[in-house]
């Protein structure tokens, strides 16, 4: 198993921390993981992205230039990275923020109204985990339990009250992915 996930959006959308959460979950399952932030001229600019590699084998190149899954939070991110996804790969779109459709027909494209679902849960901050839940359902790279376990590790104790809402977001995303795919 080798999954290379590219998460792309704007700074402030939690792109980098969502990637770290995924990498952390992979690590506690004893998989090989690597996380690379968007790195280059846009490091302090508006756009933000990160690549997460999760594998059963030692990771040679940690660069995510040909993602198996692309998660997009903004229209420019979709336009920029749509072509990079490997044939047969997946593109998960936060359709609360991006109206455009995927043009390719050789990838699985899922539109997930993550912000809408997060609002239904009652916490707009958990939108990214709705998408993460969908990714987990589609790929099986980690389990939702490992992500929840990771949240306990990466969140400071005073934020642990956020964990139930995050868990719900992950599960709602997984359910949606099962329904859509």
């Amino acid at each position: 198993m080798l999954e290379q996930v590219l998460i792309a959006g704007f700074g402030g959308q939690g792109v980098l921390s969502t990637g770290q959460l995924l990498a952390h979950a992979g690590m506690i399952e004893n998989k090989h993981v690597a996380w690379i932030p968007s790195y280059g001229p846009e490091m302090r600019g508006g756009t933000a992205n990160c690549g997460v590699t999760i594998s059963d084998h030692p990771i040679s190149s940690p660069m995510v230039t040909e993602p198996t899954t692309l998660i997009v939070m903004t229209r420019p991110a979709l336009e920029k990275f749509e072509k990079a996804v490997v044939p047969g790969g997946r593109i998960l779109i936060n359709s609360s923020l991006v109206e455009q459709d995927v043009k390719r027909d050789d990838v699985l494209a899922l539109k997930i109204p993550a912000n809408k679902i997060a609002e239904e849960i009652g916490n707009p901050k958990v939108a990214n985990n709705v998408i993460l839940g969908a990714l987990i359902k589609l790929t099986g790279i980690v389990t939702i339990e490992s992500v929840v376990e990771s949240l306990k590790k990466v969140l400071p104790p005073r934020r642990h009250n956020m964990i139930p809402a995050n868990q719900e977001a992950l599960e709602r995303g997984a359910q949606l992915a099962e329904k859509l795919s």
């Binding site: 770290q20 990498a23 690590m27 090989h32 993981v33 690597a34 996380w35 690379i36 932030p37 790195y39 990771i59 940690p62 660069m63």
Partner: peptide
């Protein structure tokens, strides 16, 4: 290089 510095790994 910058990647090595910025990259996270276990």
């Amino acid at each position: 290089d910058g990647i090595l510095g910025q990259m996270m790994e276990p």
